[in-house]
Computed example of a mutant assay.
Amino acid sequence: MSAANLSRKATFDTMTCLGTETPERPGSEPTTMPVKFEDRNGYESGFLHGWDIPLPLAVGANASDMLPLRRGGTGVELKYQNFSVIMSASRRLPMLTAVNLLGLDREQVDRIDTWYFDGRLDKSDQWGDELYHGNSLDRGHMVRREDPVWGPLAKQANADTFHFTNSCPQMASVNQKTWVGLENHILKMAKADGMRVNVYTGPFFSDADVDYRGAKIPLAFWKVVAIVTEEGRPSATAYKISQQQELSELEYIFAGYLTYQISVKEVMDQTGINFSALLDYDGFTQRAVMTGERTIELINNLDRVKI
């Protein structure tokens, strides 16, 4: 145990909140070199038994916004252990993350404190701690830290989630409450049934996003989940969470939030990401096609989630 150093007088700026992570001082963030990623498996399209789902990519006008690797590989897919990321060139944030989640064979791995740049891209391609330092924005994991942590390389998967390429700015009340609640529900379901789950996550980019420190902070995020039920039925569901109220004032972090179940087609239409492999297996999408109307339900209780 360290002895008290009475020469270290207290200042307000040196105080820290218990139980929260403090961003590195901007400019001191470490970088993981490309050679360290050579053995990563990335997202596996055939992970769900009997249902092959290719890595969704942006199509149409948004296809040109997918950022190619600068070094350490070709194409636009950043492979990590059990998950992959597609970066947006214009926003310097992940456009899409895709993770394979195994309900069994999971390992408890301690959280780490340090976030890293991915050396396969330039630092200018990724937002580092200059975006998160000294405010109430969280470095929100797009791939939840626990989701890829399974198999013999669980510790590597855990560390891989702490790259800025897997981070989007989220207000603390969204990242620490709402998103976590939905993700816990999905993870609990997978653990209970020993299920395999594919989870795709990303931001809704829009012109209305909030300008802040040179970045545009997304007003909302989406999540798409694909599973095969115990009866062998393929199921795809989609969710939207808004942080618009929280972003109205970055200083006020205890505002309300809204979470919705929406159609996979709506995510596809708004993001330009190709989820066509899932549309036939989403009841919300099929209802929207039949009625010609948007299908959306407020999730004020996780028991209302439909699969």
Rank of each mutant, 00 (worst) to 15 (best):
L6P: 13
A10R: 14
L18P: 13
G19I: 09
G19D: 07
G19T: 00
E21V: 08
E21H: 13
E24Q: 13
R25N: 04
P26I: 10
S28K: 08
S28W: 02
K36D: 14
L48C: 09
G50V: 09
P56C: 06
S64C: 02
D65T: 06
L69T: 02
R71A: 12
G72W: 03
T74R: 13
G75K: 03
G75V: 04
L78H: 10
L78K: 09
K79C: 09
V85S: 03
V85W: 08
L93R: 07
P94Y: 02
T97R: 11
V99Y: 06
G103K: 11
D105M: 12
Q108E: 15
I112G: 09
Y116R: 13
F117Y: 15
F117T: 12
D125K: 00
W127T: 00
G128D: 10
D129T: 13
Y132I: 07
Y132M: 10
H133N: 11
S136H: 15
L137R: 06
D138Y: 11
M142V: 10
M142F: 01
V143Y: 05
V143K: 04
R145I: 01
D147I: 13
P148H: 04
Q156F: 03
Q156L: 10
N158G: 01
D160S: 01
H163M: 07
N166M: 09
N166I: 08
N166A: 12
Q170C: 10
S173K: 04
N175F: 09
I186S: 00
K188D: 14
M189E: 11
K191H: 12
A192D: 15
A192F: 04
G194E: 05
R196N: 09
V199L: 06
F205K: 05
D211Q: 11
Y212P: 01
K216D: 02
I217C: 01
F221T: 01
V224T: 05
I227L: 05
V228K: 12
E231K: 13
S235K: 05
A238K: 04
Y239G: 01
Q243C: 08
E246A: 15
E246D: 14
E251D: 05
E251T: 15
Y252S: 11
A255F: 06
Y260C: 10
Y260H: 11
Q261N: 06
V267R: 12
Q270P: 01
G272F: 00
I273E: 12
F275T: 10
S276D: 12
S276R: 14
S276W: 06
A277M: 08
L278K: 07
T285S: 14
R287V: 02
V289F: 10
G292C: 07
E293C: 14
E293N: 15
L298P: 01
I299G: 05
I299Y: 01
V305K: 00
I307Y: 15
